[in-house]
Amino acid sequence: MSARACLAGLLLLLVAAGSLTPYDPAKQQREEANAAPSVQHWFGTDGYGRDVASRFLAGGRWSVLAGAAAAAATLGLGWIVGSAAGWWGGAADLVLMRVAEVCLVLPWLYLLLAIRALLPLETPPRTAAAVLLLAVAAVSWARPARLVRGMVLGLKERGYVEAARGFGVPGPVIWWRHVLPGTLPLLFTQWLVLFPRFVLLDVTLSLLGLGVAEPAPSWGALLVPLKQAWMLPREWWVALPALLVAVFFAVFSLLARKSTNGVR
């Protein structure tokens, strides 16, 4: 309970803090560019004179929300496909699982580059990033689908399912009322695995310049100066966002592990 509460608290904090930023994250103060941390700017300013702390918080809110949404979309799709394949079996199972295998081998990075190239240029930065994340979600359902399918295959042999059949309950009702609820703990643990992956994907895309475009803040864009590691001795504060992103993943991972112990 406490681990789950802490986990929820961490995410809520990040989402809420994103709307309580001390400065407008997009406001350029060019005369204050590349400034060291100070009382006014806790993490210093970036190459345009924007407050890095404000951009970290605002970027974090986006990353958390986008990661959560993409993980939920992936799981939703995987849940439906996996349970349907497991419950009905036969030709449906065969076709759905072959499609899943195709999705597993798709080179997603090239897929993303192709989608990014095809998007209209005036697509707002966050819409473009959301489209990319959803595109990954649309091809990432295969792994959770296979897990759900396996679980459904086991659940449909259980006694209470057999009993429901014996009482003449229609198949879809059994599937909906007796089988799907049994897969929910799996979905929770899968969400805890997928969520940080999608956050990391968002960070990676922004780091490569293909995610959330300027002037919208993003964690990945804050890590770009670190590509020039030799700048660190002179401008050490550019590493602060990276340290905080690392702390976020470490804390999330710890809490996620604790909260899934009960599920196992």
Partner: peptide
């Protein structure tokens, strides 16, 4: 103005 970064060949 929207800034649209794209891969160089694109």
């Amino acid at each position: 103005v929207t800034v649209a970064p794209a891969e160089f060949r694109s």
